[in-house]
Design a protein around this nucleic acid. Structure first.
Lengths: 121, 121
DNA sequence: ACCTATTGACTACGCCTGTAGTCAGAAATA
DNA sequence: TATTTCTGACTACAGGCGTAGTCAATAGGT
């Protein structure tokens, strides 16, 4: 699977949350923060279709866009690649760094403990 | 701080492990896997100096390269950025994905539990 | 004293990415 | 009906990245 850039991923996030939007809806869904021109968003959509991450369905004179890859699968893969690349494949140092640098919240810690409890079973 | 690419990061890893190498030593240190030409490695070194991630010190007719940024600080920052980008800043889902997709080892889990124990204090 | 190998400096080049612009047809509006 | 607006298709263009090549000076081997 080809690489999805950070900007493209923001587009994917909108469509994972609301599959079947037209380009202009995706543009709106992205909010004003990025300030992207609608044409910029269309470029991202076209590239994501090319990459096989989205598919488009005709709807009158426009298209509706749908994710062609699963959010969970993609993110799991991205996490694995990131950890391989930056932490030589070891997850524990990553969590240690997070703890250090950004301070996990109390809720994060509780959630992680619960997770680990389940994993141990 | 400018972005460090995946390839450049491999070069940084060699120099974090062995600061003060010449270009040809870095080339050797990278091993054969990547099969990079020594000139390619030199390009990465030059770009990393430009980016402020390395500094070079003259040593006769060549240079020795030293990290100009700390490994821990860089990786912590990279982890934070990655999580913000892909997981909206939440660490727990990341760990959940790892557990799912690649299977944390028993040692990973033990290590994480120890970490969490310390964090709770 | 010459040839070879190594080094740094500079250059090259195609692909990806961010960021749109242009154009032509259809729809909506005046 | 004439104009503006929206849509998709295609095009543009600079900067980053992967991957070196060329050139000139120097160091080292014969």
């Amino acid at each position: 699977m080809t690489q999805i850039s950070a900007s493209e991923l923001e587009v994917m996030d909108v469509l994972w949350a609301h599959p079947g939007l037209a380009a202009s809806d995706v543009h709106e869904g992205l909010g004003d923060e990025r300030g992207w021109n609608v044409r910029t968003v269309k470029t991202f959509l076209a590239r994501l279709v090319e990459k096989g991450a989205l598919r488009k369905a005709e709807d009158g004179r426009r298209y509706l866009y749908y994710p062609a890859i699963k959010e969970d699968a993609y993110k799991a893969e991205a996490a694995t690649q990131f950890i391989d690349r930056v932490f030589s494949g070891r997850a524990a140092p990553l969590v240690a760094h997070l703890a250090d640098s950004r301070g996990l919240t109390v809720e994060d810690i509780a959630e992680l403990e619960k997770l680990l409890g389940e994993l141990k079973k």
